[in-house]
Nucleic acid binder design. Structure first.
Length: 461
RNA sequence: GGCGGAAUAGCAAAGUGGCUAUGCAGUGGAUUGCAAAUCCAUCUACCUCGGUUCGACUCCGGGUUCCGCCUCCA
């Protein structure tokens, strides 16, 4: 039985799909005006893990992750570059897909772009006006009238009077209430715009997600995810828009992942303290980044530090080393490990606990590989199978251990192999001095040797 | 100020009313020509003050500290 922490109720709840056996999930994706950073990587990895686990549990999952390809920052950045905004967004969408592929993120079932849903967005804004939840200002903007939606604040636990007391909402004389938010923005000269009943303009950010999620998944769906910072106001506003427009409940379960931090401070573009995914991938293998993210619970804060990525590297090397040389067969699995793994994952996706099961399996493989090879193969199959649910250990072990971070830098594998062979000969000749010389030389190249009887294998460290 | 989250060994990170989490690092041993890998053993824990209890890191209450949201943000 799967239990998920629901931000809407602030507790773990048994997951009951709307339609038996099916899960419809929408996750807020990127605003594509720049490269993805490690914080984005966390959203990608976390909801990829959720999707994989749900599928492995037998659910038919429809996973939608949108792309925001029109907003203030995109327009601003395109102006700075003196290029068409679609050229800018196209470039960063491509970059995002490359980063996601590197991190072994399965493509979502659909990846709607806001600009492709203009008709639906305009329709939803019109509906909201018709139903009295929205109004057009004199300046051509359309606003959502927050006091018309009685349960506003239920997701974020905010009260309207507290929000008003905050005094952080900019005063806009076109709004009836300072807390009202924009659904449709009138275009300024030279801005990209779309025709609408209120004149040329473009959608506000929140309405895009309401329209796209409803179009792709229907009025009422199972899971809506995103980063913690989207809880308010973005997701709060989505609820207000969608439930007012359709008259139905919007989403059953709201999932929010915690932030990546640098020195205990949120990593964000506005703070400028971020590392892009591709920067990090110059130094570390993508799977190490994935492991690093999955090693802590998805709702916890996650500090980014080189030492933690180094630790992830060693941990993955241990797992891959246990699989090296094992003839993996599908079929017979270790039931106890499988149920421990599933129990952990069913308890709000406890990936840290699930990883502990993988390490126990590695230990069992190592213990049994010489004396009980059949058992070892069973444990290895189990390890490979369970790790696959987390999107880990899918490489060939030997290739992973020999691969270098940063991708296809100068390939010196042939040189390494020939040195290793020379050393094997030296060892046979009991020429220990030459053998150690070669080992030191390889060590300086970042290569660690492992003698195993007559065999010698190597890996990069 | 309002709301929410968190404090676990050197680092990171799960979890539980009494029973070894796990990984990285350290120490001792086995193994090895010496290493590495591996195995075995082992050192470091549960912010603080009270309360409940036969027994609390785990439950309850009060502190302290940190973080997030309240404005664009994954």
């Amino acid at each position: 039985m799967l239990r998920i922490y629901n931000t809407l109720t602030n507790k773990k709840e048994e997951f009951v799909p709307i339609e038996p056996g099916k899960v419809k999930m929408y996750v807020c994706g990127m605003t594509v005006y720049d490269l993805c950073h490690i914080g984005h990587a966390r959203v990608l990895v976390v909801f990829d893990m959720v999707t994989r686990f749900l599928r492995s549990s037998g659910y038919d999952v429809t996973y939608i992750r949108n792309i925001t390809d029109i907003d203030d920052k995109i327009i601003q950045r395109a102006n700075e570059n003196a290029e068409d905004f679609t050229k800018l967004t196209g470039r960063f969408i491509e970059a995002m897909h490359e980063d996601a592929a590197a991190l072994n993120i399965l493509p979502p079932d659909d990846e709607p772009k806001a600009t492709a849903y203009m008709d639906d967005i305009i329709k939803m804004v019109s509906d909201l006006i018709d139903k009295g939840f929205a109004y057009a200002g004199d300046n051509g903007d359309v606003y959502y009238a927050i006091d018309q939606f009685k349960t506003y604040g239920k997701l974020s636990g905010k009260k309207l009077e507290d929000l008003r007391a905050g005094e952080r909402v900019a005063v806009d004389t076109n709004k009836k209430d300072p807390l009202d938010f924009v659904l449709w923005k009138a275009a300024k000269p030279d801005e990209p715009s779309w025709d609408s009943p209120w004149g040329k303009g473009r959608p506000g950010w929140h309405i895009e997600c309401s329209a796209m999620s409803t179009c792709c998944l229907g009025n009422h769906f199972d899971i809506h995810g995103g980063g913690q910072d989207l809880q308010f106001p973005h997701h709060e506003n989505e609820i207000a828009q969608s439930e007012a427009a359709t008259g139905e409940k919007f989403v059953n379960v709201w999932m929010h992942n915690g932030f990546v931090r640098i020195d205990d401070e949120k990593m964000s573009k506005s703070l400028g303290n971020f590392f892009t995914i591709r920067e990090v991938l110059k130094q570390y293998r993508a799977e190490e980044v994935r492991y690093f993210i999955l090693a802590s619970h998805y709702r916890s804060p996650l500090n980014y530090a080189d030492s933690l990525l180094d630790s992830a590297q060693s941990a993955l090397a241990r797992l891959y080393t246990s699989l090296r040389g094992m003839d993996i067969k599908s079929g017979d699995l270790d039931d106890e490990s499988v149920s421990r793994f599933n129990d952990a994952m069913n308890e709000d996706f406890n990936t840290a606990e699930a990883l502990a099961v993988l390490f126990d399996l590695a230990n069992k493989i190592n213990k049994s590989r010489n004396d009980e090879p059949e058992d070892a193969i069973k444990y290895a199959s189990t390890l490979k199978n369970l790790a696959g649910i987390l999107g880990l250990l899918e490489d060939n072990p030997d290739e992973f251990l020999k691969s270098a971070a940063g991708g296809d830098i100068s390939d010196d594998s042939k040189e390494i192999d020939s040195l290793v062979n020379e050393r094997i000969q030296a060892k046979q000749d009991k020429n220990w001095q030459r053998a150690d010389e070669i080992r030191d030389q390889l060590h300086a190249m970042g290569v660690e040797l492992e003698d195993n009887g007559q065999q010698t294998s190597w890996r990069r460290v």
